[in-house]
Amino acid sequence: MTKASNLPYRPCAGIMLVNSDNQVFVGQRLDNPDSDAWQMPQGGIDAGETARDAALRELTEETGIAANKVDIIAESAQELFYDLPEELIGKIWKGKWRGQRQKWFLLRFNGHNTDINIATDHQEFSRWKWADAQQLPDMIVPFKKELYKAVLQEFIPHLQSV
């Protein structure tokens, strides 16, 4: 087995989608129904795709929300990283990655809840809800907690000025 430290990080885009009340969209992963962990939409950046384009594609793939129903408010100044726990390395992503490096985007949702449909062709969530932004680090799996704190630290000032 390859040492985790020799593996690269998977390039990804993450989306902090907020509604008019500055609540954040979170979904419960379909592949982990027994967990009480919730997460924001995110996914890999395809070859030749920009992080921005990947974020909008992933948003539609995971939530059914069309790109014309959102405005991009901000993007993270730099990529944020997380490492998989040792027990997951080699079990997900065909063992190619040690974790993810993510460019994050803050998006304002301008639609209605009826525009959200998680039963997509690429369904990842079994349930969804709007959550208080400050609760996000306590809702995610432990190995992503610090990353979520960093996303909040960067994006909360934008929410306070909108």
Rank of each mutant, 00 (worst) to 15 (best):
A4H: 00
S5G: 00
S5W: 08
S5A: 12
N6K: 13
L7R: 12
P8L: 10
P8G: 06
Y9C: 01
Y9P: 02
R10V: 04
P11L: 14
G14L: 02
M16V: 15
L17W: 01
V18A: 14
V18E: 08
N22K: 12
Q23M: 11
Q23E: 10
V24W: 02
V24A: 15
F25C: 04
G27V: 07
Q28Y: 04
R29T: 08
L30H: 01
L30W: 07
P33H: 05
P33R: 08
D34W: 08
D36E: 12
A37E: 10
Q39A: 12
M40S: 11
M40I: 15
G43N: 01
G44D: 11
D46H: 12
E49I: 01
T50C: 10
T50R: 06
T50I: 08
A51W: 00
D53E: 14
A54D: 08
A55M: 09
R57L: 08
E58F: 02
L59V: 08
E61W: 03
T63P: 03
G64P: 06
I65K: 02
V70T: 13
D71Q: 12
I73C: 02
E75R: 13
E75K: 13
E75S: 14
S76L: 06
Q78N: 12
E79T: 13
E79N: 11
F81P: 03
F81Y: 13
D83H: 07
L84W: 00
P85I: 11
I89F: 02
G90Q: 07
K91I: 01
I92M: 09
W93A: 11
W93H: 14
W97R: 09
W97L: 10
Q100G: 15
Q100C: 15
R101L: 00
R101S: 15
Q102M: 15
Q102R: 11
W104H: 06
W104V: 02
F105W: 07
F105S: 02
L106P: 06
N110Q: 09
H112K: 14
H112C: 07
H112L: 10
T114Q: 15
D115R: 13
I116T: 06
N117Y: 03
I118E: 07
D121E: 15
Q123L: 00
Q123T: 06
E124R: 14
F125L: 06
S126E: 12
R127W: 11
A131I: 09
A131N: 08
D132N: 12
A133R: 04
Q135C: 04
Q135V: 02
L136T: 07
P137M: 06
P137N: 05
M139E: 09
V141I: 11
F143R: 04
F143A: 05
K144W: 05
K145Y: 01
E146C: 05
L147M: 15
L147E: 13
Y148M: 00
Y148D: 00
A150W: 01
V151P: 07
L152Y: 09
L152D: 03
L152S: 03
Q153L: 12
Q153Y: 09
H158P: 03
H158W: 13
L159G: 00
Q160D: 10
S161V: 14
S161I: 13
S161P: 01
S161G: 03
